[in-house]
Nucleic acid binder design. Structure first.
Lengths: 242, 242
DNA sequence: TCCTTAGAACCTGTATTACAGGTTGTTATA
DNA sequence: TATAACAACCTGTAATACAGGTTCTAAGGA
């Protein structure tokens, strides 16, 4: 099957390597066929024949796309086009953090920038259901106030819910991608708020945001969000996080 | 070598599949060893022994990380930890666009939000060298004014240079990730500016931004950037881009 | 002694074969 | 007609083989 030592396609070696070429062929197929999430892709065997490479190469290509969550794979079934997912972005951000190419503070600056916008959009566009979900997360933060782990998860859900209410999936994608970083640093900020009073004040900040969204006041919502982030960054800096 | 049908590690099968486990083991290794960009990773053979799986599995794991640009691979050499790269993010965004899960307009809204910040930061933090690079891109747009392709590339370089001058690599990462989308839609916006006058006006907008950055005026810079995006979005809408 | 060079050792890239197990559609039987 | 068994196809993982690139070392020559 690997007779051809002469390139059957003399043009356009896209990047060194058959696997890269296969990845490109697959994404190209999705584009050309106009596939939507859930639609099935060709089988590995079919791709093997079409590209005239070994199954190994095709598998590594499929697996790579699966790792980026561009496609879904499962045993016995064809691979399918995946719904938008934050998996790859999260990994890139985490990689940047763990290799110290980006700092936590830089992430918070980006979050502040983006979430000042998502909160304003949410105030303008949120459905009643979305406003309720945002309020519920804030309420659950207060109710679980003695359980930091729970507060954190509701905090993260709060911000993701706001991003969802912005009705722009790109914002959701980015905000959700940062959640992993938040999980690793959140506790630090919580601990610097040593008194019950300081911690409840932080929760109150979330309730203010939720209320502004409910009222549909984008300017007020953005203001509260900005204050929230300023305090969070200050807490991280106080704890010595660069 | 594959004797174990009983799980040697009874706990924490992270997700169904040996490959996912291998990916996690590699990223875990990077974290645990505190590896920096350029540092070498274990060879495939070493990983094969350590995880007690076949080389196939290890290879697919390495390849997946390579596809996300978290590691660099090349024949004969060990894989190394990669510098922060926009590859994976670009692919996610492009996937969202081609499968119509996100719209071009939504991307522009995100870009506007982010770049109003990067331009303000650039005005505050830019080095003289960075200010010069930004100005140069604007100038090259005007000089190549009859060659749309060239204008586009300098336009993209302009925005990436501003992001770089913000001195926050996360902003750079995101802005650069959007460049692919820009390349696919830029011409549409250019065409709606049918007259020379309208096209030169758009270039003038870039020069205004560059000047504000040079002067170190973040408010003015952000204002010009906002106007630029408002006009660009209007141009896309006039052309019927949802 | 120092530089050059040939080669060994190790590494990745790709192909091939094999088999286990999941999924799906079809057919035969109750 | 409904159900159950089966065949065909698919992916998951393993093992092996070989080609070609990289690196280090040691032998040989200046």
């Amino acid at each position: 099957m690997q007779v051809s030592m002469e390139p059957t396609e003399p043009m356009s070696e896209p990047s060194p390597g058959l696997v890269s070429a296969a990845i490109q062929a697959i994404t190209q197929h999705i584009r050309a066929e106009g596939l939507a999430p859930g639609d099935p892709l060709p089988s590995e065997a079919a791709m093997t024949r079409q590209l005239n490479v070994s199954r190994t190469v095709v598998r590594e290509a499929f697996r790579s796309l699966s790792a980026m969550r561009l496609i879904d794979m499962s045993a016995g079934r064809r691979a399918t086009v995946a719904k938008l997912d934050t998996g790859a972005m999260s990994m890139v951000i985490e990689h940047g953090i763990t290799t110290q190419q980006i700092s936590v503070q830089q992430v918070y600056d980006v979050r502040r920038t983006i979430e000042m916008r998502t909160v304003a959009l949410a105030a303008l566009r949120r459905t009643d259901q979305e406003a309720a979900a945002i309020g519920r997360s804030a309420r659950l933060m207060r109710e679980n106030f003695r359980n930091p782990e729970a507060v954190m998860e509701h905090d993260i859900a709060f911000h993701e819910a706001i991003a969802a209410a912005s009705h722009n999936p790109v914002f959701s994608l980015i905000v959700t991608a940062f959640s992993g970083v938040t999980r690793r640093t959140w506790v630090i900020g919580w601990r610097t708020r040593s008194s019950d009073e300081a911690q409840l004040k932080m929760i109150k900040g979330h309730e203010d945001i939720a209320e502004a969204i409910l009222k549909g006041d984008p300017r007020l919502a953005a203001e509260h969000m900005a204050q929230h982030f300023d305090k969070s960054v200050k807490a991280l800096l106080d704890a010595g996080i660069a």
